[in-house]
Each structure stands twice: as structure tokens, then as C-alpha cells.
Design a protein around this nucleic acid. Structure first.
Lengths: 380, 380
DNA sequence: TTTTGGAGTGAATCCCTCG
DNA sequence: TCGAGGGATTCACTCCAAA
């Protein structure tokens, strides 16, 4: 596949099926230096950042394979820094620029290797970002260590952070759990490198970008920590993996990139992406997203009657329902939660799952009645 | 097992079967602050350092499990620091003290989590240490994320470094390769937590140390980067896992520890260690069943797309695939297994064999896609 | 003697809305 | 802004008691 399309504008065409009026920078690639280009975005305009900054690889001479063929190392000039101080200054600058455009309840991901990730992590913390997780991308097919002098470097590290300690960041917990066969998603992600047809090649068959990330990685990043319609910024856009996956998943993107060749490749690539149907983008949500149902509503709706008797799971405690939706059990009165907690001598209790009622000879948690109520009266 | 042995001296008896004339500090535990105690060691006297410094966790209030029981947090005073600056100063001080006693061709390992490891890594680099690898310890049985607000924190990070860029460090490449079924040892190590009989308990059955590391981890560290007879320093000795494994593997140890209770426990523990031929590796080589493949992986890998339609064997039920790997069929949403069970009115259902997709005019169970996935990505 | 079920636990930066 | 209160939230493994 050739990506050398002459005359493609630096700003990719917006895809129109997502929204009506959009600022000019939406779903486009800004050409230029990261810090300068970000000044063209308004403050608090971005929901999520994914950044794959230069790794500051400090390679000595050429690396040879056992058969003496040369390893195609990442020795591009943009990856060279004179010192740790220079790299730190660069990192601080782009992180501060990103911070300005990131919403207070947004999120940021940065990927790196041991060459740079410790600098990035420290500076994130120094700037007041709050680390939520570090995630390790385990490569199922890493490059072996040809000289046998170290362990095979089989992973990279991602840092997920919010702009401040008390930010209300997005995390699609239930969706990720469903994704992972009903088990919590862990901080270790086993994914293959970007190879084969997914890897962009130029007319000569050479890879267009030395560190193109797999779409599977971005899929998981965007699915976990953004919502459909969100704006995702990638300040080191490269060949646009972030943009391609964002478009596929119904998110907006903004990219910043200095090299025209990468911009051309990314623009062509993203144009070919088919967005998923909006309906398939809705994602499993937990109980927290369901509308709150006051217990008293069950009485109003006739699903329960004043005077009904509730029991705890083991039948040890009983309580009777009062007309105002409170419970009475001996001396204790109060909400379903409070009475449950008091009887058990605990600080808290989820009354919906604790209290049961007998129906057709079986004990059913009152949460089942709540579900019936919600079905009868959707979006109450 | 009780480790409360009164009258045990702070300095453990040397074990005499390793060498003849030894300095007094060899195979002993130095009591006191790390920096001060290290002044008692000569310059260039240590071959390898393993350090498990405080992580500076910065925990908030109590954390309760879903069953309302309290998580036994690591809230010891030694893990409290006023600020990142204070933690950095502490880190710089002990690393400089360690650097003095470490031989120019020695090595150092430091373990940490995202709370502290970025500070440690940056300071290592600033002090001129040369990072050789970062290694991730993947926990097979981590503590879950009880509130569902983040990814399960399922790993810790180790940094392996030499004192300078051109150090001739020790790396037993062939030994590790043999250890690892004739494959290069990778930078991801899958090991269980320290639990069961290995975990030191006091007379009341409480764990002696909140963060005791598994011997399997130290086994791999010492096997890979030290030689028999080497001196291994652990400046945060705790209950002496480093010393126990060093003795087992025929290495000398020096520990530094402030708390007398830990010193007592470690001394008793190490006294019971039999220096043995390494035949006890079986714990780290758990047999590999067919790797579990979450349904979501098929989406990431592009074998299925959001919006695809699945059907049951008889074509009676249809469901559409959503971006998070859940299915939607009428009112029902959830995992492939859950939705299959709901539609059939059963308690359980194997979604892999139940759901089919049309390919080239034929209905194929999605299990076929899973097999393709496994072939493409062995040992995911 | 063997199997089954329940309780316990591990370095954790772990809620959110409303008045 | 703060406090009160509703109510949501767990995986792998070990040990011990019970069957």
C-alpha cells in the first residue's frame, strides 16, 4: 500500500457523521511542533490524551543480528536528546501544553520504555497529575535480545493519569469486565506488535514509521477511558493509529505531527476507516449508571405493601415495611440500608441485596423488585 | 511458626561453609538506618544489591471489601513521606550510599510500584547508573480492585542497572535460558505472591512483615545476575528473603534493617535455610493450560467487528456484537455466555460453541475464531 | 480417606449525589 | 464547600471444617 499521496492537505477532512458544528481543528492533524501547535486549541477542549513521545533511545553503534544483518533501529533525529536534562525540559513543556487543553475531568495516557518512562512518570507527578495505573503492554512477539546480554525486552509501560487527584475521570469498568470474560481487566495487557497488513509500508516496502503502535492497544485505551463523542488528542500523531481507532470507535481526534510524510500517511489511513455503527458503541454499564430508585417507589407501585415482612439472607433478622418506605426491626428504624447495617453491627449495608421477601415459596432479594420497577418505568 | 526468639543477636552467625576468613559484616544483618549502617562497609565490597525500599503509597482512608471486611493496608510509619521531594531526598541518599560499597562491575535491582518507581528510576539515571532492563513481576493472584474504579494492579516493576554505562556486569544468559525451557528469559516474570507456609507469621498468626517478597522472585534475581560466592547487599532487609535465597544459592549476604522484630524474624529464618542444590524451581514453572482468550480480544485483533451479527445454532436467536465484547439481543446485554444463557432461559451457556457467525455462506461457531486467534498468538 | 464448601487474604494512592 | 447518606464493589489461592 502506498501512502505517498501528493497534495493531501495537512488538515484531514472531518468526518461528518458524528456531529454538526465542529471547530476547524476537530478530526484534523495540526502540523508543527507539539507545544506551538497546541496553542491553537482552546483551553479545556480535550477529553483524553494519548501520547507516544520520543523514547530518547541511547543506542551506541549499529546493532547486528547473529547473521550480521543490521537491525533497523529507531535512530531518527527526533529521537535524539543531548542529555536527560534536555529530555526532561522537552517532556515538561509538552505536558504543560497538554494540561492546558485537557479538561479537568479528562485523562492522559503516555507510553514509553525504560529509557524514558521514569522521566515521564516523575514529571507527571511533579506537575500534579495523579497516576491511576501503570499498565504493561506485554508483547507476544518481541524482538529477541541478539547479544544475550540482557533479558528480552518484551514489554512497554503505559501510565494512565488524571489531571488532579480528585478528578472524576472516565473508566468504563463494566465494559472492560465484559470484554475480559466477566473478570476485572488487569494492569497487564498481552498484545502482539503491529506487523503484517496493519503495518504501514511505503512504495519501497519500508515501514513508514519506526514505532507504529498496534490498533489493539489503542482500542483498549479508548474503550476503557473515553466515551463516544469524546475528543482524543494525540500530540505525537505519527501515522495516526490513535485517529484511526478513534474514528472506528466514534470518538473525535486531534493530532499534532511535525513530519509531512507521517501526516500524509495518517490522513490516507484514517480516510479508509469505517466507523462502527453508533448502536454497537454503547457499552455495558454497571448499576451505578442505572437511575436511582427510592425504596418507597416500590410501595407506590404496589410491588410491596406496608406491613410486608423482609428477612436477611439467612433468615436471622426480620423487619417490617412501613408506609414511608422505612423499615422497623425491634428498636431499629430507618432506611433499608441503615437498619441492615445496625442489625449486623456494621457501618454500611446494601439494603437492596441484603433484604429478601418471600414470593411463591422462594426468597427473593428486593433488588429483583427494583429491576421490575425499572423495566416498567424506564428512565424514571 | 513462631519467629519470636528472645536473645537472638542483631548479627546473625555467619555460616562457615562458604569461605574461610570473612569480614565481620559478611552474612550478617546490620541494625540501623540504611545510610549510616552502610558506612560500616568498605568501598567496593558488594557484587549485587537488591533493594525493596518503601513505596510511599499515600493511602487515603480505610478500604472495605464488598463483604465489608477491612483491607489490611500497609500503613506503617516507615512508608510515610511528607512529599515527593522528601521521598526523592531519601532515595538519593540511600542510592549514593549503596553506590560507594558496590563494585564497579556489580549490579543493582530495585523493586517498586507506580507510586515510587518513576522517582527511583529517574534518580538512578541522574546518579549515572545505567539501566539494563526493567522487569515486570506479574502477580498470578493479585488483590482485586474492590471498588471497580481502576484496573487491577496486578504487577510490580523491577529495575536492573549497573553502576555505569560500560560496567562488565554479570548476566548468566545460558543459565536463564535453560531455566526457561531453552527460551531467552523475557522481561515479564509470572510469579505468585508470597502466601501460605512461606509467609512468616507471628505467634498470633499475624503476618510479620506487610510486604514480604516471594523467594521465587529473589531466586530469579540472584540466579540471573550474581555468581556463587558473590556478596549480595539488601539495604531494606525486612524479614530477609534476600538473605534466605542467597544462602540457598551459595551467595553471601549483608542486610541492613532498622526494626528489631524484623531482624529477629530474618535471623531465625535464615538459620533454618539449607544451602541446597537448586532443584526447587518447580514453583515457578506452572503448567500452561490452553490460554484463556477473552471474547473482546477477537475485536481488538480485527477477527470480528463491532456491529457483527451472531446467531444461535438453529438460527432462532440473533445478537449483535458491541464494542466492548458484549452482546445485545433485544433487552438482553452481557457477555457471550450470559446472553446465551438468558435467551435460552438457562443458568449457564458456553458462548463459544453456542454463537455462530456467517463466513462464506456457512455458519461457523465463534470458537473457530478463537482457535485462529490462538494460532496467531501462541502463549498469549 | 477423600471431597466440598466457607472463610480468610494479598504493597490499594478504590464513590457520588444531594441538600 | 462540606457533611450526610444511599448503595456499589472482588480474584486466585490457601486453609480448615464438615461431610
Amino acid at each position: 500500500m502506498s501512502v505517498q499521496r501528493k497534495g493531501v492537505p495537512a488538515v484531514a477532512p472531518r468526518f461528518s457523521d458524528l456531529a454538526g458544528d465542529q471547530p476547524a481543528w476537530m478530526d484534523s492533524i495540526l502540523k508543527g511542533d507539539c507545544v506551538a501547535a497546541l496553542e491553537r486549541l482552546p483551553k479545556n477542549s480535550v477529553d483524553l490524551v494519548f501520547a507516544d513521545p520520543p523514547y530518547n533511545l541511547q543506542l551506541g553503534g549499529d546493532l547486528l543480528r547473529p547473521d550480521q544483518s543490521k537491525v533497523d533501529a529507531c535512530d531518527d533525529h527526533w529521537d535524539q536528546f543531548a542529555s536527560f536534562e534536555a529530555y526532561d525540559a522537552f517532556t515538561r513543556a509538552w505536558l504543560m501544553a497538554v494540561r492546558r487543553v485537557l479538561k479537568p475531568d479528562g485523562g492522559i495516557w503516555v507510553i514509553g520504555s525504560y529509557h524514558n518512562i521514569f522521566r515521564v512518570g516523575s514529571i507527571l507527578q511533579d506537575l500534579g497529575f495523579w497516576i491511576l495505573n501503570d499498565v504493561v503492554w506485554l508483547k507476544s512477539n518481541p524482538m529477541p535480545n541478539f547479544r544475550g546480554k540482557r533479558f528480552t525486552n518484551a514489554h512497554e509501560t503505559l501510565i494512565w493519569a488524571s489531571p488532579s487527584k480528585d478528578a472524576k475521570y472516565t473508566f468504563n469498568y463494566e465494559a472492560l469486565k465484559t470484554f475480559n470474560d466477566d473478570l476485572q481487566m488487569r494492569s497487564d495487557w498481552h498484545l502482539p506488535l503491529c506487523t503484517g497488513a496493519e503495518r504501514l509500508k511505503d512504495a519501497e516496502g519500508q515501514k513508514v514509521h519506526p514505532t507504529q503502535k498496534p490498533e489493539s492497544l489503542l482500542y483498549r485505551v479508548l474503550l476503557s477511558s473515553s466515551k463516544p463523542g469524546d475528543v482524543v488528542l494525540d500530540p505525537f500523531f505519527g501515522t495516526g493509529t490513535t485517529g484511526a481507532v478513534a474514528k472506528k470507535l466514534g470518538r473525535h481526534f486531534v493530532g499534532v505531527e511535525r513530519e509531512q510524510a507521517y501526516i500524509d500517511a495518517a490522513t490516507a489511513r484514517i480516510a479508509e476507516v469505517e466507523p462502527a455503527a453508533p448502536a454497537s458503541l454503547s457499552v455495558t454499564k454497571g448499576k451505578r449508571a442505572a437511575p436511582r430508585v427510592p425504596f418507597g417507589n416500590l410501595l407506590e407501585a404496589g410491588l410491596l405493601h406496608p406491613g410486608a415482612t423482609l428477612t436477611c439472607p439467612k433468615g436471622k433478622f426480620k423487619a417490617s415495611v412501613r408506609a414511608d418506605g422505612s423499615l422497623a426491626s425491634g428498636e431499629h428504624t430507618g432506611s433499608i440500608h441503615k437498619v441492615g447495617a445496625l442489625l449486623q453491627g456494621q457501618d454500611a449495608c446494601n439494603g437492596w441485596t441484603y433484604w429478601h421477601i418471600e414470593q411463591n415459596g422462594a426468597k427473593v432479594p428486593i433488588d429483583a423488585l427494583r429491576q421490575i420497577f425499572r423495566l416498567r418505568r424506564p428512565a424514571a
